[in-house]
Design a binder for these strands. Structure first.
Lengths: 249, 249
DNA sequence: CCGACACTTCGACGCGCGTCGAAACGTCCC
DNA sequence: GGGACGTTTCGACGCGCGTCGAAGTGTCGG
């Protein structure tokens, strides 16, 4: 797609291709770059300065990290005037990072303030997971959809007929069949709950709808998402969620 | 599970947990460790010496790498007499590594000999993918199953009714419903083909069956799997695979 | 046109870690 | 018991890379 394609310079039979796991690992092996990737899981495009501030490093340091992440294909960038916007390259990369984060060991971070503690609980409850919802709320929704047989799990997650109808009632056409044979009811291992929540195109559409209807509103510039009172109502009505599932753990 | 669990030492509200992506990345960031993980994707248990020889490092170096991989939870080990056997910790780890390998950049490795070249082509054709089949053959089988409507892709990969019947005809009970609501028709991004092939419990059972029936036989101690003449026959009969799909690219 | 700002380049510093060989330990076989 | 073998521990070496500040380039606004 871009320049610098090295598949053309190799003569046919003296070289073979192997996946270079190490170079991808090295990209994630630095704590600053890891923090950047995790922050970018909110799906937004960040400026280089924002990234530097979040990661707590000098702007020059951020530049070199962003260069490596872009070169490695993890990030896409767009230069606009004096700003450099970066975001995750595509949803596949986001999936990969989520999958890794779910399996990574836990690190204990000191909580500096009361608002930070509150935010941390909020992250566990509802957060953006690139293009869909994550957190205990998302897991509860997935469980409820399973219990109501909107979602079936025998041989992989899939919408049932009533699931498709349920979506239609919410004003969401089944976008799963859209992308030429590529599945888009997936699941995503929630890294706070260690249980799967709904992902893929259907989850993205659902999330989009919830934002439109102001059931969910973007939080304070991080991945946090807040559930509004109409949202609580809707989830009670449409999925029969109990009140325990509808508030911060 | 093991000792050194640090979840117990934190007092309730001054610390919060975050995924430590960097430490997991660091585990994979070294080319020797990456080679080890890739080799272990064959699902076998290797001794430390075998690992050292494969990676081309001194035994002492291999020891330290294996220690780190075991401590990091990627590998499980079993000590038997003077031997130390290591293997991937579980199928989840194998999935994660496959997912990473599929997205990792390609590295050009010089092919030293004619047999190495042959082996490389064989790896692209059919190889062990932890507990199931990978390579162009696996992709072709997946495509054929889709074409014959044994496999459906709307809203995620799933067996159709005729797919379940087809499996039963091969002597495979639907083991997908076994593990309490956890899906086990998955797909796996094939890193040679960059297209999905069947994975999960069903694929594992299918692979196991093919080995039993000697349709496939383990290759020369690497991930390579050979397709036998009866195997070719069976794939023609059961899936209508064309001859192009049945031989090394 | 000039100052503020976003970002980049460069050079220098220092730590972390992958590497090895030598030597020790434990196990197995004769 | 003795010798071969698989594995581990230890210490030493050296490279790679993340870090910063200072200076430079480009862009926007007044």
């Amino acid at each position: 797609m871009s320049a610098g394609d090295n598949r053309l310079v190799t003569s046919p039979d003296v070289h073979a291709e192997e996946p270079d796991l190490a170079s991808l690992g090295a990209l994630l092996a630095d704590s600053t770059r890891a923090a950047i990737c995790l922050a970018l899981l909110d799906g937004r495009a960040w400026t280089a300065s924002e990234v530097a501030r979040l990661a707590g490093v000098a702007p020059s340091t951020a530049t070199s990290h962003l260069n490596r992440l872009v070169d490695g294909g993890l990030l896409a960038q767009e230069r606009r005037g004096r700003h450099r916007y970066v975001r995750l390259a595509d949803s596949g990369i986001a999936e990969m990072i989520e999958a890794l984060a779910a399996r990574a060991p836990r690190r204990l971070v000191p909580v500096r303030s009361l608002t930070a503690a509150r935010r941390h609980r909020a992250v566990g409850f509802a957060r953006v997971c690139y293009d869909h919802l994550g957190g205990s709320l998302a897991v509860a929704m997935t469980d409820a959809m399973t219990a109501r047989e909107l979602l079936s799990w025998e041989s992989g997650p899939a919408l049932t007929a009533s699931g498709t109808a349920w979506l239609a009632r919410l004003g969401i056409a089944d976008e799963a069949a859209g992308a030429a044979g590529r599945p888009h009811v997936r699941t995503c291992l929630d890294w706070t709950e260690q249980r799967p929540h709904l992902a893929g195109a259907v989850a993205a559409a659902l999330f989009h709808r919830a934002l439109e209807a102001s059931w969910l509103v973007p939080g304070d510039g991080s991945r946090v998402v807040r559930l509004t009172e109409p949202g609580r109502d809707a989830l009670r009505r449409h999925l029969g969620l109990a009140d325990e599932a509808l508030s911060t753990g």
